[in-house]
């Protein structure tokens, strides 16, 4: 407890980040050959920073996670957490610097939420894992942070996937480390749960000044919540920066480029590429036109603002006025609009 508090204070005053790597090369070594996934990485995470690691499947996200966590040996270089080399650290010391939330399936029949979260206090307890009142306070606070206070006595196996993930985050919080590392914490969760987990993590980083490092496939969420994004792909070395800078530099488009979709810099989201059948002019800029544009784009039309094209659409008085091949149609909704256009072409 005390030692961690002092570490936190010290590092807050230092310009040194809580985690940094020096010439870190990650990958796998077999008897015959060596596979280098990333070479000579010099990356850092500061206190209170939320860092999201994103990249396509198979680019080595998990390997980087595991290497930084000291669960896998690097090919070269070192990782320092609070100035300590993770590969040269005593188990109990390690557990006070870094807590983990992993993708490993946890199967523990009759363990309660309380049982699981108190395992987070193990680095601080004696041989019998006896909890002091200060331990109980931290456990209560951790459960409160993930909105699970009333779930204390529930069995872990009876919880939903989202609740289980929150319990494991509470366990990591109870461990009270300056750095929390989460491997795909939003995988297998539905949208509300994904957003909630990300919000919780964002808030924790700000409120507790902990550094939070997570890998995810949720690009939208990462762009909206991360302070820093580490972008990984197979061809290039890892790029790190604020989400906005990475978008403007075109990195996002490059890393996730595909013939099936494009990254739209303006909206910050991915769009599926549809083959173009022709151009349609659409006037108006309100909600109705926005959704009509999406429908038309899905159907393979490129939507333009000027009115010189054979098909033009105007929304007025809750109806759609469609002019096509010299004729005028009145449509009730977007569905009717689409089917009219489809019939005529």
């Amino acid at each position: 407890m005390e030692s961690i508090a002092t570490i936190n204070q010290e590092t807050a005053h230092l310009t040194r980040p809580i985690l940094y790597t020096q010439g870190l090369t990650i990958g796998y070594k077999t008897k015959r050959n060596t596979l280098e996934l990333e070479k000579d990485l010099n990356i850092k995470i500061r206190n209170g920073e939320l860092v999201c690691l994103i990249g396509p499947n198979g680019c080595g996200k998990s390997t980087l996670m595991r290497t930084i966590a000291g669960l896998q040996k690097p090919l070269h270089g070192e990782t320092f957490i609070a100035e300590v080399d993770v590969n040269n650290i005593k188990p109990h010391q390690y557990a006070k610097l870094l807590s983990l939330v992993l993708t490993d399936k946890v199967n523990v029949g009759a363990m309660t939420v309380m049982d699981i979260v108190s395992i987070g206090r193990y680095p601080y307890t004696n041989y019998f894992a006896r909890l002091k009142s200060s331990d109980y306070e931290i456990i209560e606070r951790s459960l409160d942070s993930v909105h699970l206070t009333s779930y204390k006595d529930r069995f872990f196996n009876e919880l939903s996937d989202g609740e289980k993930q929150r319990v494991l985050i509470a366990k990591a919080l109870a461990q009270d480390t300056p750095l929390i590392l989460l491997d795909e914490p939003t995988a297998h969760l539905d949208l509300p749960n994904r957003v909630e987990i990300m919000n919780i993590l964002k808030r924790l980083a700000k409120e507790t000044n902990k550094a939070i490092f997570l890998s995810t496939h949720e690009l939208d969420l990462a762009l909206q919540t991360a302070d820093t994004i580490w972008l990984m792909n197979r061809e290039e070395t890892l790029k790190s920066g604020t989400p906005e800078d990475l978008v403007l530099s075109g990195m996002f488009e490059r890393v996730f480029k595909s013939s099936a979709f494009t990254f739209d810099k303006l909206s910050g989201s991915f769009k599926v590429v549809h083959p173009t059948k022709g151009k349609v002019s659409l006037s108006g800029n309100d909600v109705h036109s926005t959704w009509a544009r999406r429908a038309l784009e899905r159907d393979g039309y490129q939507v333009v603002q000027d009115a010189d094209w054979p098909i033009s659409i105007l929304h007025e008085e809750d109806r759609w006025k469609l002019e096509m091949n010299g004729k005028t149609f009145q449509c009730q909704d977007i569905g009717e609009l689409l089917s009219t256009i489809r019939e005529a072409n």
């Binding site: 966590a69 669960l71 188990p91 109990h92 010391q93 390690y94 557990a95 006070k96 870094l98 807590s99 983990l100 992993l102 490993d104 399936k105 946890v106 523990v108 363990m111 049982d115 699981i116 395992i119 987070g120 193990y122 680095p123 894992a129 461990q175």
Partner: peptide, 15 residues
């Protein structure tokens, strides 16, 4: 108890 969570989690809490 720590082993119940799996090897990596057990390592993570200093076991």
């Amino acid at each position: 108890n720590a082993l119940l969570l799996g090897e990596n989690y057990a390592t993570g809490v200093g076991i």
